[in-house]
Amino acid sequence: MGESHGSSLYEAVGGRDGLRRLADGFYERVLADPLLAPVFADFTAAHVEHVAVWLGEVFSGPADFTAELGGHQALLRAHLGLGITEEQRVRWMELMTATVEKELPDDALLRRRVIEYFDWGTRIAKDVSASPPGTDLGEPGPTPRWGWDGLA
Rank of each mutant, 00 (worst) to 15 (best):
M1Y: 13
G2T: 07
S4I: 14
S4E: 15
H5T: 01
G6C: 03
S8A: 04
S8Q: 14
S8D: 09
E11Q: 13
G14R: 03
R16G: 07
R16V: 05
G18C: 02
R20Q: 09
D24E: 15
D24A: 11
G25N: 03
E28S: 12
L31T: 12
A32F: 00
L36A: 04
A37G: 14
A37I: 15
V39E: 04
F40G: 11
A41W: 08
A41N: 07
D42I: 06
A45P: 10
A46Y: 09
V48M: 06
V48R: 07
E49A: 09
E49Q: 12
V53M: 02
W54M: 08
L55C: 03
G56M: 08
G56S: 06
V58C: 07
G61N: 00
P62I: 03
D64F: 02
F65A: 05
T66R: 03
E68H: 15
G70C: 14
Q73R: 15
Q73N: 13
A74L: 05
L75S: 08
L75H: 02
R77S: 12
G81H: 01
L82N: 00
E86H: 11
R89L: 08
R89W: 13
V90D: 08
R91Y: 05
R91I: 04
M93W: 11
M93H: 07
E94N: 08
L95H: 04
A98P: 04
A98Y: 02
V100S: 05
E101T: 01
E101D: 15
K102A: 14
K102S: 12
L104H: 02
P105I: 05
P105N: 03
D107M: 13
L109A: 14
L110F: 03
R111L: 02
I115D: 07
F118C: 07
D119I: 09
D119P: 13
G121M: 15
G121H: 13
K126Q: 15
V128H: 01
S131M: 15
S131E: 14
P132W: 02
P132I: 06
P132F: 01
P132M: 08
P133A: 14
G138I: 15
E139K: 10
R145M: 06
R145I: 12
W146A: 00
L151Q: 12
A152K: 14
